[in-house]
Design a protein around this nucleic acid. Structure first.
Lengths: 231, 231
DNA sequence: TTTGCCCGTTAAATATTGTTAAGCAAAAAT
DNA sequence: ATTTTTGCTTAACAATATTTAACGGGCAAA
């Protein structure tokens, strides 16, 4: 597994293609299905991190599919795509155990926010997640490719930069203890390693400069925190 | 422990129903009202753990309702639901004493996070609330970002300033015991830490100078109190 | 009122962090 | 085999944050 895998089931071919392309562009690995039955087959064959399900679909509707999926893998997050003002659909979806919903038409930006929020939550705090793509502000960290994608394009990272950004991003808006970071990335907390980390922080702050929403603040004597402000 | 009771006041029938369903599904006991007046009546009849109030509503808006509620039960936490970019609404809400806010459209994810955070801290008394934003007089403390927003604009704070202002603001108009503050922020109550705190108090008083309504008064031998006068 | 302690303020000293650049060794390229 | 490049560390210095010192005023108990 290289990127977060998304099962996208959407019968409208236009929207489906757009979703697929957008999500790919943003560093996910979407699998597009045209109806519920196809979705079910793909689900059985592969392992996904999140499902995006349209509700009204031929052959097998989103509800039915969601119920079947939940029966097999209860913890797999589901995000429904519903027509506007179909509140009954939304409620039904939530009852089945959907994590969230989006009413059509939605912007790609909204979609991304929701997807990120869900994927972020499903990873346990304190641990580094198995997720390979991290988004924060206008940036996307492709962890296993060691690439930071930002407003200015893609940027190759060194492994230390990569590790440190991942640590900060995985604990977004939370404090990352200095000593913990050092042990995690450098192996132990010593004076020179600490100075080395400071050098990397400086480099990373420079990389993150072109989105003012993203900042790394220091908590004196404690550690660091990546904060992401309002859109 | 029994379910937490939530007073949900939202005039959009779709959103209202969705909120109710979702919160029920997540183990809460929501009571849905369609306008501020109905909300007020329910509030008088029952006992709640948290209020979720829309701001723009017919008959009685969220602000008015919140003020009335706070007059009767000051410690009841309030979470406002506001339209996006209504920064003035947000500030007004925080001044009334809201605990947090959500800008529409919000994800169910976010909602749940906020609700949980508020309920979690109200159950543990004596602890400092993990609130993000504190208001007092013309100031807004963005705790997570270590920024104090005042009449003169935004001001970056050091960690110690940040902690101390938060402590004072969270106990607004109440006495903060010296020794308690020291243990809370410096770890222990020793002579030098006490002197250090005095230095910070001095710095903070300087920062708060541009609003005469806000003052930190000393209770000799006891501690400090941030008092906020009327406009 | 006098004495001693507590507190306010400013300044100096120390500790921690930010930044830039030099050094160095391993990997990659030639 | 040698240069060149790359990633990381160490060093050096600048900027901040925090603590300690110094001095003076105010308050409360005797």
């Amino acid at each position: 597994m290289s990127k977060a895998k998304l099962l996208v089931v959407e019968d409208d071919p236009n929207l489906g293609d757009i979703l697929k392309e957008y999500l790919e562009m943003k560093g996910y690995e979407p699998t597009l299905c045209r109806d519920g039955e196809e979705g079910w087959n793909k689900f059985k064959k592969d392992k996904f991190d999140l499902c995006l399900l349209d509700i009204m679909m031929p052959k097998k509707d989103g509800f039915t599919l969601a119920k079947e999926i939940k029966k097999v893998q209860e913890d797999l997050p589901i995000l429904f795509l519903t027509a506007k003002n179909q509140k009954d659909d939304i409620i039904e979806g939530l009852k089945i155990g959907a994590d969230d919903y989006l009413t059509k038409p939605f912007s790609m930006e909204e979609l991304l926010l929701r997807v990120n929020a869900i994927l972020r939550r499903t990873q346990k705090s304190g641990e580094i997640s198995p997720l390979k793509v991290y988004t924060f502000g206008d940036f996307i960290l492709h962890y296993d490719e060691q690439i930071l994608e930002g407003p200015q394009g893609k940027n190759k990272l060194t492994s230390k930069e990569n590790e440190l950004i991942r640590l900060l991003a995985s604990e977004m808006n939370k404090l990352v203890n200095r000593s913990h970071a050092l042990k995690q990335i450098w192996g132990d907390d010593s004076y020179f390693n600490a100075r080395s980390m400071d050098v990397y922080l400086s480099k990373i702050r420079k990389l993150l400069r072109d989105d003012p929403k993203v900042q790394i603040i220091t908590v004196h004597g404690e550690g660091f925190k990546m904060i992401v402000g309002e859109a």
